[in-house]
Nucleic acid binder design. Sequence first.
DNA 1: ACGGGAACATGATTTATATCATGTTTTTGG
DNA 2: CCAAAAACATGATATAAATCATGTTCCCGT
Lengths: 240, 240
Amino acid sequence: MLADKHKGGFSEACETCGSRHKSIFCHLALEELALFNESKSCMSFKKGQIIFKEGGHPLGIYCVNEGKVKVSHSGQDGKDQIIHLAKNGDVLGYRALLSSEKYNATAVAIDDTKVCFVPKDAFFQVLKTSHGLSLEIIKLLATELRRAVDTITDLAQKPVRERTAEALLFLKETYGFEEDGATIDVVLSREDIANLVGTATETAIRLLSEFKNDKIVEFVGKKIKIIDMAKLVKTANILY
Amino acid sequence: MLADKHKGGFSEACETCGSRHKSIFCHLALEELALFNESKSCMSFKKGQIIFKEGGHPLGIYCVNEGKVKVSHSGQDGKDQIIHLAKNGDVLGYRALLSSEKYNATAVAIDDTKVCFVPKDAFFQVLKTSHGLSLEIIKLLATELRRAVDTITDLAQKPVRERTAEALLFLKETYGFEEDGATIDVVLSREDIANLVGTATETAIRLLSEFKNDKIVEFVGKKIKIIDMAKLVKTANILY
DNA sequence: ACGGGAACATGATTTATATCATGTTTTTGG
DNA sequence: CCAAAAACATGATATAAATCATGTTCCCGT
């Protein structure tokens, strides 16, 4: 945990960053990119390190260049709820900035991760001039809001078993498969999965074991392999 | 229900609309307002009438001028989840429009309601030119997204009793009290309250009866009067 | 390589909440 | 104004899921 606090060490120009093309910044003009580039700082985080903390004041945004990040909100009993899982091309920390609030969630690297921090001044300056970016952000927020509403409805109405199956499908959508075309390419603890589903850790463990017994999944190392997608979709009880 | 299908009948200029000052359109320029005004149409809805329907294609936005509206998303078993409650000054239907999706929820008047429909062309035209409006919308979406995240965490972690108490506090925040300073100024069925909390109707009925026995609330006609706010806050288990 | 802690697993038990059932009250439409 | 249908209420029961408890396995640091 106290291992490597070193956060610098990598460098990538915004103009040539591959992740940018997948992001809300894909349509920025060269001069806008240049502004980002000269004010940004690149940081590396080891698995388990905190990128930003709930309750803290946002000072800028984080562009994920490589790696994986979980973003979770803490309930008042201290139990976390995972509200977002990010990969390269995703931008983090913008919501708090845009609503002038403190961070409502904590971002933790769940894999060795490289991010670029863009200070809020540069971000807002570009936002002020680039109407295209505004629209891009609006679209992103509007889409996330719909997803959140769907999640709310699921939590209120669907049993844990279905939500757990759904969570696996979500992980597959987010991080994809490995080369074998079946193993979900992310490592999460059972507790993380429980916090994503919104259930007790033991329940998540039990349900995953059941899925294994039912030949829906297999455990491959710390990863989960989907061996019967049709059955998983059926278990999730969704119209896919 | 089939009573008065007549939806016209009222008229209010955007330029002089009092609700506008509470809305995302509070900073629009006169010429932008004029564009809204000449293309908008004013409609009245009786309690129970549908303003727009989940699955439908958005053709514009609805500005609530007077009345109350519930916005609910249907789970696949047909059970509704109330995701928003609107009053005058609130704008509805913009999320679907901004993310280029179909309506993800149905809006129903829960009181006699007056709304102004602004066609999407006029809306987007103003959005295109008014950077202030973009920022206003971004802020609104970002704030709603935080609220949604908080709701998700609550649903995942808090028991129904606490959430029910919280719902009453939310109703008070949204619609305020009557002149007596204690009766929440909105009429909702027990089923609506259940769909807001995310629980079974019987459970909501039971808990409200309990709150009544515990001298936390009283039922005044179809409305709920909070007679022990401190106890209600404590029951909700929130840091107020 | 080993000890210790975290993560995983699984059984037993409790509990919150949904569901089922039935009755009463209130509202609504003809 | 009356019949029928919602809405409300409450009890009994079932059940999903949390919690409690214990043991095993897997890592990780020294």
